[in-house]
Computed example of a mutant assay.
Amino acid sequence: MQPFVHLHSHTEFSLLDGISRLPDMVRRAKELNQPALAITDHGNMYAAIYFYKECIAQGVKPIIGCEVYVTENSRFDRPEGRSRERLKHLILLAETMEGYRNLVKIVSKASTEGMLYRPRADRDLLRQYSKGIIALSACIQGEIPQYILQDNMEGAKRSIEWYIETYGKDNFFLEIQNHGLPEEAKAQEELIKLSKEYGLGIVASNDFHYVLKEDADAQDIKVCIST
């Protein structure tokens, strides 16, 4: 049986969202015989080095990544008014050392050049630093699932074609999740069809923010503080 590997995970460094402590999540992955583990905190890589060292110490392969916020416009734009832009999510994973350096540049520039409530990356930034990176279409807040939920399949296809052009067919995957949400079921059905149409791989992920079932209430309280 193929071992499961978490490729979409949030630590306590996903501020006011995740509560997974690094030693605990790595230890749990090892207990479940998962050979590798990714870190994809929201908009930052604060925990990357700590995570890497913890994985090496416990004998789990570390995969360094980030769940970035993508703006439809330029990251340099500052829209007038107080309404927040509906940013899209995107999972980026470093495949090589060049990819790690490029991921650092994307995340840094999203914060220093694109910050508006949240660090924002745009397509120019993603295209410029795409080498050595594997991209996943993310949760239902991702660009492609959002098009699907809006019944805009042409938009979803245009988006897929852009990501294939940017990362290559072998380095872009459609991501499916099942947390019991009806939106996920609708997105999943169409994502599977699109994967066949474009010959893309599918990644099944669990968008986890805490390590054990009994941690759920604590994470819920943290989200309440945030919202």
Rank of each mutant, 00 (worst) to 15 (best):
M1N: 11
Q2P: 05
F4S: 04
V5T: 13
H6L: 05
L7F: 10
L7T: 15
E12V: 14
D17K: 13
S20H: 04
L22H: 00
P23R: 06
R27P: 00
K30I: 06
E31R: 08
P35W: 10
H42I: 09
G43P: 04
M45L: 15
Y46F: 13
I49S: 06
E54V: 08
V60K: 05
V60T: 03
G65Q: 06
F76C: 08
D77L: 15
E80I: 15
E80H: 04
E85A: 03
H89F: 07
L90K: 05
I91E: 10
L93P: 01
T96W: 06
E98S: 14
R101S: 14
K109T: 04
K109P: 00
M115P: 01
R118V: 14
D124N: 13
Q128I: 05
Y129C: 06
A135F: 02
L136K: 01
Q141K: 14
L149D: 02
L149N: 00
D151Q: 08
D151M: 01
M153L: 15
M153D: 05
M153I: 11
E154A: 08
R158K: 12
S159Y: 07
E161S: 09
I164C: 08
I164T: 03
I164V: 10
E165P: 01
T166R: 04
Y167I: 14
G180P: 00
G180Q: 02
E183K: 01
E184R: 03
K193A: 03
K193N: 12
K193G: 00
S195Q: 08
Y198V: 02
S205I: 01
N206D: 13
D207R: 11
H209I: 10
D217I: 15
D217S: 15
A218W: 11
Q219T: 05
D220A: 15
I221W: 09
T227S: 11
T227P: 00
